[in-house]
Simulated assay, not measured.
Amino acid sequence: MHSPSRQKAVFRFAPSPNGFLHLGHALSALTNQKMAQEQGGRLLLRIEDIDQTRCRAEFEDEIFRDLAWLGLEFESPVRRQSQHVADYQEALSRLEALGLIYPAFLTRGEVKARLAAGEASGKPWPRDPDGAPLYPPDDRLRPASQRAHLLKNGLRHTLRLDMQKALSLVKEPLTFQETGDGEKGEITADPSVWGDVVLSRSDAPSSYHLSVVVDDALQGVTHVVRGLDLFHATSVHRLLQQLLDLPVPVYHHHRLVLGADGRKLSKSQGSTGIAALRAADHSPADIRHLLGF
């Protein structure tokens, strides 16, 4: 396991331009800024626009306006995932060479039918930490000849990680250092609870899991600061880092900003959007005070 060396600390804020920033994003950006200042480190901005079906230029423009209004400054140039697809393809190729990737053809309807049949038999279907059902084993167990036939016929598919096989290559416990608002200290990662995660789709050449570990490594990020909703996903990231021989940042998962319903904010909640708050004559100081800065 590679740990950050005694180089200058590097932090990053990495929003996706698939909606307007809200208070939760402001908390994350300001936490990154504060920690970078405390450690005399660098602060980077990354635009995670790998999903071109949902990301839009107007949302990216608004991200820059919101961050500038909040008084946040980042180093240039800004990394945009859509400009670095070759980096993710290279990582996919390395995993494929290890025999860890397989094409998955089941549609959402077919997965839903498997789930319903399994639960009807009285056996609960396994779910990941986010509550989503794990992908059935059909495609992982599919004969190579049948797999090749489906690919030749151009059947739409995703690329998934063979979790069991990947874990068989790991000869030491996967751990990471956590300094955030939940568990602290050395955390043992358990990627198996996520099942065979998606690494690439037809509408996005790299999944969040794959692109984020590749980007963090290429940008020399030493400290990943993000919301507690991504704490469990770190287990998958640690596995990919191990398989790809990438450095391991220190992780800091901060508290979430919750809405009136007690749930974490989403980009669809316009009342908590930074642009809406700015239009309502709130000041950057108001936002900082509201978030505890």
Rank of each mutant, 00 (worst) to 15 (best):
A9I: 00
R12E: 08
F13A: 10
A14V: 04
P17C: 08
N18K: 11
L23T: 02
L23F: 03
L23V: 02
L27T: 04
T31Y: 08
T31N: 11
N32R: 09
K34G: 00
M35G: 00
M35S: 07
L44N: 05
L44W: 03
D51A: 11
R54C: 13
F64D: 00
R65Q: 13
L67K: 06
V78M: 03
H84E: 12
H84P: 04
D87T: 04
Q89H: 14
L92D: 02
S93A: 15
G99D: 07
I101T: 02
Y102F: 15
P103V: 07
F105W: 08
R108T: 00
L115F: 09
A117F: 03
G118R: 04
P124R: 09
W125L: 01
D130H: 05
D130A: 08
L134F: 09
Y135F: 15
P137T: 05
D138P: 02
R142F: 00
R147M: 04
K152T: 10
G154K: 12
R156M: 00
L159W: 15
A166K: 11
V170P: 14
V170A: 13
K171Q: 14
K184Q: 15
A189N: 12
P191S: 12
P191Y: 07
L199P: 12
S202F: 05
A204G: 12
V212Y: 02
A217I: 06
A217D: 05
A217Y: 03
V221K: 01
L228Q: 14
L228T: 10
T234L: 03
R238L: 15
L239F: 07
L239K: 08
L243I: 04
L243N: 01
L243Q: 01
D245G: 02
P249M: 05
Q269A: 11
G270W: 11
S271N: 14
G273D: 12
A275H: 06
A276Y: 08
A276P: 10
D286M: 02
F293I: 01
